[in-house]
Simulated assay, not measured.
Amino acid sequence: MIVLIAAAAQNNALGKDNQLLWHLPDDFKRFKELTSGHYIIMGRKTFESFPKPLPNRTHVIITRQKGYNPEGCIVVHDMESALEVCPKDQAVYVIGGGEIYNLALPYADRIDLTRVHASFEADAFFPEFDPTQWKLVSSVPHEADERHAQSFTFETWDRM
Rank of each mutant, 00 (worst) to 15 (best):
K45H: 07
A149F: 06
V137G: 05
R159A: 00
T132W: 01
A91R: 13
P141F: 03
D17K: 14
R30Y: 08
Q19K: 15
P141C: 09
A9S: 15
H117M: 15
L113A: 08
M42C: 11
F120A: 12
A122K: 13
N56R: 06
V85F: 01
E33P: 02
R64W: 04
A144E: 12
D27N: 12
S49Y: 07
F126N: 06
Y101W: 08
T156Y: 00
G43S: 06
F129P: 01
R30P: 01
M79S: 14
F31Q: 10
L103I: 01
G72A: 06
F152S: 03
N69T: 06
A91I: 02
P70V: 09
F154M: 03
H77C: 04
G97Y: 01
N12H: 14
K135H: 03
Q10N: 15
G72L: 04
D130P: 01
T63Y: 05
V94R: 00
L24S: 08
A91C: 07
L34Q: 14
D123I: 12
L54V: 12
P131R: 06
T58S: 09
A13M: 10
S151W: 02
A149S: 15
Y107W: 14
G98P: 10
Y107R: 10
T132G: 05
S81Q: 10
I95H: 05
M160H: 10
K66S: 12
W134C: 00
H38N: 13
R64M: 04
H142Q: 14
A108L: 04
E146P: 05
T156C: 05
F125T: 07
E121W: 02
F154Y: 14
L103S: 10
A13F: 06
D158A: 06
F154D: 00
D112P: 00
F154N: 01
G98K: 07
H38D: 05
F125E: 08
F28E: 11
P127H: 13
I62V: 15
K16S: 12
L103G: 03
D109Y: 00
F31M: 09
F152I: 05
P51Y: 06
T114V: 12
A82H: 00
G67F: 12
P127W: 09
H148L: 09
E84V: 02
P131M: 03
L105H: 10
T58D: 04
I111V: 09
A118F: 04
A8G: 13
D130I: 00
L105K: 09
N11C: 15
V76N: 03
A82N: 01
P106W: 11
N18M: 05
L105W: 06
I40P: 06
E71S: 15
N56I: 01
L20V: 14
P70L: 11
E71I: 12
I74N: 00
N12V: 03
L34H: 09
V75K: 01
P87L: 14
E80Y: 02
R30E: 03
V92T: 01
S151Y: 03
R115F: 03
F125Q: 09
L24C: 10
R115Y: 03
E48S: 06
V94Q: 01
G72P: 11
T35P: 13
F120I: 09
T156K: 00
F28H: 11
M160F: 11
T63H: 07
L105I: 12
H142R: 13
P25D: 09
I41R: 01
K16I: 12
F47Q: 05
H117L: 15
P53E: 12
K32E: 08
A104E: 13
H38M: 08
C86V: 01
T58K: 15
A6L: 08
G15R: 07
